[in-house]
Design a protein around this nucleic acid. Structure first.
Lengths: 241, 241
DNA sequence: CGGTTTCTGTGCGATACCATACTTAGCCGG
DNA sequence: CCGGCTAAGTATGGTATCGCACAGAAACCG
């Protein structure tokens, strides 16, 4: 896939799996957008005017605390949508959505998704099953934060990101990763150094290349597998046509 | 409230706020149940046959890891329902639900809730808004696990429990609390000792009495307030009639 | 090509929490 | 009232992570 070209809406799994009738209704209103690294998709407490369906970008849901410390709650790629609070009925959420890996997404006016959600039972099921996968991810993040080492969490984080990208390379500084994991930058340096020594990854100034994915999976805690399995289970079957 | 008597369904806020028509449909099928401390309401990965609407008990959603370590993901009292995966469409979840404070709940066959959910848009909104509050709680748990001390987390945990009980006393051993928080029992002993020295709580063998709630709120991290505010915001207005 | 910025590596002390082992104390049943 | 059990307190040492300070190195930019 040439990342400078806008992929079609089918690259987002939710849009792709949406019922035909819903596709007819909302596809005309989808707007192609390019999301820059670090862009804030929505702010904490704000009512999002648009929801975003990523195709080749990654958006992180982040909670930023009063003292500026932060922690990633979950991550959204082309398997999902940013802005579930729109159809969950709460409008806003206390978290923030920021672009973790630049790329493209389709945006849609919140109201249009809400309509489709209320109008079509299949669409609703699709969105709710995705939401449940997201819930699993948040729950597992809580567990992981409690019990696992930075090393393990870094593995989990890289793998989750990798699953949402077409390449085996992440463009991320250790500083940014540390913000996501909610740890010090030095901690990430240390963990990444170990992974490099082990030959699992290679990195240089803002770029991580995964060399040995199986090794990364072995070094990760069980949290990655749990999230992955549950996300797959709850994902729509790839459209046969 | 006499805890040996079964409260009416109205003691659960979701049942109480359910649309009249839904109440007519499902109330006849509600079954009073008594939940013992430690009872497993549903197992990880199982498809729950019943959902539970607590009235004066507390149920914790817990994740238990391969090595036996555990962590509480969120907590459900009379403001909510245990078994959201039933209407979210995923059927099962990787977490476990266990009774953290004994008491009563109404149970309902999962299918009946699912029907009501699909049948009635207001009911759906009610359940989804509650689910969003639950999501906030999980997200905040993740953040809290990452950044806050055991002392702060204990305060948060006591306050969240207190909000779901009619008294200012919790019947909990430090051992159980440590399982919930995912820390060692000694850590809880230490933190609880400090809170007692400060005059915020008093405890003896399995019973914690809150003496100075405002102090507890001050000693807690911001996480409690965030969850409380968001839960209140998303809660149904108390039925006027 | 040289200067500047940004990213990464390292060292050091502080600390919160863990693991283990053991002791003390409260509660309950006989 | 006395044993026994379980809950809670304490001691010691180890380790992961933090906080801070700074040094080296790669990319970038005129």
């Amino acid at each position: 896939m040439n990342v400078t070209e806008m992929p079609t809406p089918q690259f987002n799994q939710l849009l792709s799996a949406a019922p035909d009738e819903v596709q007819k209704r909302i596809f005309p209103y989808l707007e192609e957008t390019q999301l820059q690294l670090g862009a804030v998709v929505y702010e904490s407490g704000a009512v999002p005017r648009y929801v975003y369906f990523p195709t080749d970008c990654i958006v992180s849901l982040l909670y930023v605390m009063e003292d500026g410390d932060s922690a990633e709650i979950s991550v959204v790629g082309n398997e999902g949508v940013v802005g579930i609070s729109v159809f969950m009925g709460g409008e806003s959420t206390p978290s923030q959505a920021i672009v973790q890996s630049a790329g493209h997404a389709y945006r849609l006016q919140s109201e249009r998704l809400k309509e489709a959600f209320n109008y079509d039972a299949d669409m609703r099921l699709l969105m709710l099953r995705y939401t449940q996968a997201l819930i699993t991810q948040m729950a597992q993040t809580a567990v992981c934060n409690r019990h696992h080492s930075i090393d393990q969490q870094l593995c989990r984080w890289i793998l989750l990101s990798l699953d949402r990208l077409p390449t085996n390379q992440l463009s991320m500084t250790q500083e940014l990763i540390s913000n996501m994991l909610g740890v010090r930058r030095e901690g990430v340096t240390h963990a990444a150094g170990k992974l490099q020594d082990e030959g699992a990854i290679e990195y240089r100034r803002g770029h991580i290349t995964v060399l040995d994915r199986p090794k990364l999976e072995r070094l990760s805690c069980e949290c990655y597998a749990v999230v992955k399995t549950e996300t797959d289970r709850l994902s729509p079957q790839p459209a046969s046509g």
